[in-house]
């Protein structure tokens, strides 16, 4: 292992890691929003939009992220929309992640039995109150493992961003290997950086899981 090389190249990796984290987190944030939107459409059974959501979910889940990225990166300029590679990366992640998040939310909502809703409205709560105080907190707690698995999955998926010339961790490693042939060092650094990013996320996930099982309703 060439330690002096590692020391020299470390700042490059740090910069790349920040890019990975930034695009990853923004992409995930939008994925959650898309997922919530899809869940709302499904939950409220809005006609037409419901079919659009189903079509989107199938399309998004059954095509590789790389191809989705190419469509966004090379396709959007063709219809006159010019954006940065970074914006394309975020959009790609949101497109892929939105469907995964929607499915995680759905599994949570479906796991809370219909009779819990009946029990809540029997007490005189409105449908909205029942959803907010009884269904949602339970559904959310059940969804957390799925959501966290998606977060980790999406952060790892950022490694395909190198294909649209975003200088993320993967891009930097490949670049360095091409320049100096320090394959061992570069791959070791790559693994180390992904672990540094993802391990805390995993830990946070299990912490959230334990916390979310109890809820209050303030006031």
């Amino acid at each position: 292992m060439n330690w002096s090389y590692i020391q020299k190249v470390l700042p490059l990796y740090e910069k790349a890691a920040l890019l990975t984290v930034r695009i990853g987190l923004l992409g995930i944030l939008f994925a959650v929003l898309v997922g919530l939107l899809c869940s709302a459409v499904r939950q409220l059974k809005i006609p037409v939009l419901r079919s659009v959501v189903s079509a989107y979910i199938e399309l998004s889940r059954n095509t590789p992220l790389l191809i989705q990225l190419f469509f966004i990166y090379y396709g959007l300029p063709k219809i006159g929309i010019r954006t940065s590679a970074e914006a394309c990366g975020i959009a790609g992640l949101a497109f892929l992640g939105g469907s995964y998040m929607a499915e995680a939310f759905r599994s949570g909502l479906e796991a809370v039995g219909k009779i819990q809703h009946e029990s809540a409205v029997s007490l005189g709560l409105t449908g909205l109150q029942a959803f907010r105080y009884v269904i949602l907190p339970q559904a959310f707690a059940i969804s957390i493992p799925g959501i966290m698995a998606n977060v980790i999955f999406l952060l790892k998926e950022t490694s395909v961003f190198s294909a649209i010339s975003l200088m993320d961790l993967m891009f930097t490693a490949k670049d360095q290997i091409g320049l100096y042939y320090n394959t061992t060092e570069c791959l070791a650094l790559l693994v180390a950086f992904y672990l540094v990013i993802l391990l805390p996320v995993s830990l946070l996930g299990s912490l959230l899981e334990r916390r979310a099982r109890h809820a209050e309703f303030g006031g």
Partner: peptide
């Protein structure tokens, strides 16, 4: 109900308080 249907995420007291306070 036959299956109780308490709200599992709330304490006994909060189960009782929810509807009188919110509804």
């Amino acid at each position: 109900f036959q299956s109780y249907e308490l709200f599992p995420h709330l304490t006994v007291m909060n189960n009782i308080l929810l509807a009188p306070m919110k509804a």
